[in-house]
């Protein structure tokens, strides 16, 4: 595993631990945490805090037949399984389960300038997509109306703030206008989630925006 330099923020991890993060952002969090032991540990701590909050939130009697009803539920169903670590491929299991496979299961659509994307199916609040940026190419200069989270899965990109390599996640908000450029080397593949459409600073991508849904 490479050295991860850019992690999720406390607020995002907290929102994920409390279950208040959208599905689109949660997929980026789950994928990053699959690659990052630091954030996994922090999340475990936040889950423990959730357990403590739950255990001190009082108690309410269950229905009289609740135990019998639960045993009946158990009789209906079988064992659950965990998300085992991936055996092959470059994508962690949570992402693979959205795609039904690894890189070869991605149905890329061209966005322009060699950049390709695939929008993943989520509950419709915000959006999450895979982005393919050929080495040396850039995503047009843009700002954000809300939050944008970009996780690198292959290659690396740079923008005005820093360099982001495999496992790194960039969290951008309204204050950041940036032009991510894929580094030379392997083409860059990212998982990016937003809660609002991006705001392009030049005319051409702005015109294309309704068609490519960035």
């Amino acid at each position: 595993m490479t050295q991860i330099k850019h992690h999720l923020t406390d607020a995002i991890l907290m929102a994920y631990a409390t279950g208040s993060l959208t599905e689109a952002f949660s997929l980026v969090v789950a994928t990053h945490v699959s690659l990052c032991d630091d954030c996994r540990a922090q999340l475990a701590e936040l889950d423990a805090l959730g357990g403590e909050v739950m255990m001190t939130a009082g108690s309410v009697d269950l229905d009289e037949d609740a135990f019998a009803a639960t045993l009946a539920l158990i009789a209906q169903d079988q064992k659950s399984t965990a998300l085992r670590p991936r055996k092959t491929g470059i994508f962690p299991t949570p992402l693979q389960s959205y795609l039904g496979g690894d890189l070869d299961a991605v149905k890329w659509r061209r966005v322009g300038g060699g950049v390709k994307q695939m929008i993943l199916n989520t509950d419709g609040v915000g959006s999450v997509r895979l982005l393919y940026i050929p080495a040396g190419m850039s995503v047009p200069d843009h700002g954000h109306r809300g939050l944008e989270m970009t996780l690198v899965l292959q290659g690396a990109f740079r923008d005005e703030t820093d360099r982001f390599a495999v496992g790194d996640v960039e969290v951008a908000n309204e204050d950041l206008n940036h032009t991510p450029i894929a580094e030379d080397g392997p083409d860059c593949i990212c998982l990016a989630a937003t809660d609002a459409p991006l705001r392009f600073n030049t005319l051409l991508p702005r015109l294309a925006q309704p068609f490519v849904r960035i």
Partner: peptide, 10 residues
Amino acid sequence: KSRRPEPEDL
């Protein structure tokens, strides 16, 4: 009625 993707297990 939503989903919360989970990290893969260690």
